[in-house]
């Protein structure tokens, strides 16, 4: 199954990792970036251990790592880690 990661809106790059951290697919800013892939895998493992509710079946769907003008969106599917680097455009104006 191929996921069209390059068609994600405001995409700057993407990475697809196997569950052992091997880069399966990559492109854009993240092309063959194995160093950052390792960091993402550690984050995924750490996040997997955080309980979200009393039910153990509840797992996160999305991890967002937000910077000032870009963000990494991470999700897991079929024992693969999908990472997308996107421009960060806040959905709503700042309400202070």
């Amino acid at each position: 199954m191929t996921v069209p990661l390059d068609r994600i809106p405001d995409s700057l790059g993407y990475l697809v990792l196997a569950d052992d951290g091997a880069v399966i697919n990559s492109g854009g800013d993240l092309e063959n970036n194995e160093d950052i892939a390792k960091l993402f895998l550690q984050m995924v493992h750490t996040a997997s251990r955080i309980p979200l509710s009393s039910s153990k079946k509840d797992k996160y769907r999305k991890i967002s790592v937000v910077w000032d003008n870009f963000m990494y969106v991470i999700t897991v599917s079929q024992h693969k880690v999908f990472i997308s680097k996107r421009k960060y455009i806040p959905p709503d104006p700042v309400t202070a």
Binding site: S48, T75, V76, S77, H79
Partner: peptide, 8 residues
């Protein structure tokens, strides 16, 4: 890692 979502 968890099985995760179906449509990443």
């Amino acid at each position: 890692i968890p099985n995760g979502v179906t449509a990443p």
